[in-house]
Structures are given as structure tokens and as C-alpha cells.
Amino acid sequence: MVHEVQAVVARAKGEPVELTTILVPDPGPGEALVRVQSCGVCHTDLHYRDGGIGDDFPYLLGHEAAGIVESVGEGVDDVAPGDFVILNWRAVCGKCRACAKGKPWYCFDTHNATQPMTLPDGTVLSPALGIGAFAEKTLVAAGQCTKVDPEASPAAAGLLGCGVMAGIGAAINTGGVTRGDSVAVIGCGGVGDAAIAGAKLAGASTIIAIDVADRKLELAKGIGATHTVNANEVDVVEAVRELTGGNGADVVIEAVGRPETWTQAFYARDLAGTVVLVGVPTPELTVELPMIDLFSRGGALKSSWYGDCLPSRDFPYLVDLYRQGRLDLDAFVSETIGVGDVEAAFEKMHKGEVLRSVVIFE
């Protein structure tokens, strides 16, 4: 059986997205059909639309999603019809060299559904991050479905599917933030604010939010920042050092993906401190540093893919914290919108007016 559903498609580089009919097949072996309840509007979707990730148009956008499993294919036993799930874009294989080393969060052979979703004329769609969830239904690999507490709000829980998990994981999993640490976060969008929330969860004593917009800095304070720095008004490195006893922060998280902000992060950390790059740079960007500075400052320079998360471990844990009132995922939902409002949501995101617009499917 083939399902005709409404979905958001980017047909060409830089062109406005289109709400149109697509065809979604029933699940084959190892696959699951998911009725999408919510999907966040993420910067990654905008990168796809603008050709910043690839040119495999047309793209079926959306990936930060939660929903209900409708049916599963042969050999699937981890999830079943009726399960409330968060979709993830790193379904681990369990067999590659990273998985064999006991580090499945680095899996080098993650997988997606093998059957294509298409336009009515047969044109094959490229699902964003292997998900494609700006759609009433989507087809994914069963391993991309993580079962969580069904009492959680889909709008909030779905954000763990990408941006919020990336930020929290950048602080806790990649940065190793622990009790009493000082943490600076450069860039207070959805991912940066999630890193702030992660630092707070981990027990950091000083959490410095850095951005160029006062409105964003105020939001960051509500999420857990103890101090704010407007990068348009002061020298970021000096400000961080002043707030950390002249030393610099133990962990600096760069959530912008620009050479100038990464360089600020490098010099704003303490000796032997850690820099975490979680902001996604475009391919042409480069960083140049004196090698003596790399040598003499020590510490660690890390990148964080998806917050180095293991969805089967991290999603249920974070949803439980949300249900207990210890992690305010609702604070990341700036507005709920219809599936036809994605293009307008991109404009709001570009202007920095929202942390997350979330599409709600009735």
C-alpha cells in the first residue's frame, strides 16, 4: 500500500519550499512507518533548502520529530505499532569498528530506510538527515525510532531529535561538563541554549551566555545562564576571563560555526580547557592559528556530532527529566505552526526571532 500525504519539499536551491503531495510506501524489512505529530524547524532544514549540504534536490525537509508508529516491516521487534517515538538520524549498526569498540555514538555505518519516498510522478525524494518529517507520515529505518514516555508533549520531546540533543550532548557528552565547572557558550540559538541547559544539568557553577542580541541573552538567562556577554559591546575573551577569575572557562562551546567565534572559544578557555565545536560550518570556512598556541595551551579541541548521543540511552533519560520538571523542554518551543507555515518560520529563524517553531500535525 502507498500512502498519499502532504509534505514540505524543497525543489531547487534557494527556492521557497512547497507544500505538496508525496507517496510513502508501507514499511519493508527493518523499516517503520511513522505518523508524525510534531516536527521542529531546524537550521539544518534551511541549509538543505539553500544547497548548503548537498544538491540532491528535491529534498523532503524536516527531521526534528516525534510521532506514533503506524506499522513496521519484517524483522522489527524494538518498536511496535502504537509506540510514541522520537526520530533520530543516527540509527547505529552495532557492527562497525566504532560499535565494536563500545562507542556506538560514533557509529560509522548508520542506516536509513531503503525504500524511497517519491513525488506522484515517481521523482525520488531525498529525506533530510534520512528522516523527512515535514510530512503527515514518513518512512524510516526502525532503528531511527526511539520509544519514550507517551505522556510527554510531542512538540517538546521531538526537539530532542536534533537541536536540543546536540546542545545538551555537546555540554555533557562531548565537553564532559561536571560539578563546579565554568562554561561559556558562544551563540544562543536553540543549540546554544540547549548547551546552557546541559551545563546546568551537569552542575556547572558559572555559565556564561555570549551573543550579539540582548533578547537572546535574556532567554539564555531563563534557561540557566548565570552571566551574559554581548559580543558587540565587549571583547569576548577578556569578558570570559574576567568572569572566571582571570583564567578562562573550563569548557567553551561554540554553537555558531564561524572561524571568528571558534577562535574566541579557543582563547577564552582556561589552560588545559576544552573547546567544543557544535555549530555547523560551511565547507569553505577555515581557521588559522599559531602552532605554538596549540601546543602551549594544551587541553582538548573537539567537535560534537549530534551531541555524541546514543538515542536509545539519552532520549528516554532526557524525557524522564522533562516529565520530572528538571529539564524545561517547553522553553525551546517558541511557537507552534501548521505544515504550510515552514517558509515563514525559516524567515523568523533567520532573523533570530524564535528558538524553535514547531509544526504540529492534527
Score class of each variant (00 low, 15 high):
Ala80Pro: 02
Ala80Trp: 04
Ala80Lys: 14
Pro81Val: 09
Pro81His: 08
Pro81Lys: 10
Pro81Cys: 05
Gly82Lys: 00
Asp83Gly: 05
Asp83Val: 01
Val85Tyr: 00
Val85Ala: 00
Ile86Asn: 02
Leu87Thr: 07
Leu87His: 04
Leu87Ser: 01
Asn88Pro: 02
Trp89Ala: 11
Arg90His: 15
Ala91Ile: 14
Ala91Gln: 08
Val92Tyr: 10
Gly94Lys: 11
Lys95Trp: 04
Cys96Glu: 10
Cys96His: 09
Arg97Asp: 15
Arg97Ala: 12
Lys101Cys: 09
Lys101Phe: 14
Lys103Pro: 04
Pro104Asp: 15
Trp105Pro: 00
Cys107Ala: 09
Cys107Lys: 07
Phe108Thr: 10
Asp109Glu: 14
Ala113Met: 07
Ala113Phe: 08
Ala113Gly: 04
Thr114Tyr: 03
Thr114Val: 13
Thr114His: 07
Gln115Tyr: 02
Gln115Thr: 03
Pro116Met: 12
Pro116Leu: 10
Met117Cys: 12
Met117Asp: 11
Thr118Gln: 09
Leu119Asp: 01
Leu119Met: 06
Leu119Phe: 05
Pro120Ile: 08
Pro120Phe: 07
Asp121Glu: 03
Asp121Asn: 10
Gly122Thr: 06
Thr123Cys: 00
Thr123Phe: 00
Val124Cys: 00
Pro127Asn: 11
Pro127Ser: 06
Pro127His: 04
Ala128His: 09
Leu129Lys: 12
Leu129Gly: 08
Gly132Leu: 06
Gly132Ser: 06
Ala133Lys: 04
Phe134Ser: 03
Phe134Trp: 07
Phe134Asp: 01
Phe134Val: 02
Ala135Gln: 05
Glu136Pro: 09
Glu136Lys: 03
Thr138Arg: 01
Leu139Arg: 01
Val140Ile: 15
Val140Tyr: 11
Ala141Ser: 15
Ala141Tyr: 09
Ala142Glu: 03
Ala142His: 10
Gly143Asn: 08
Gly143Tyr: 06
Gly143His: 08
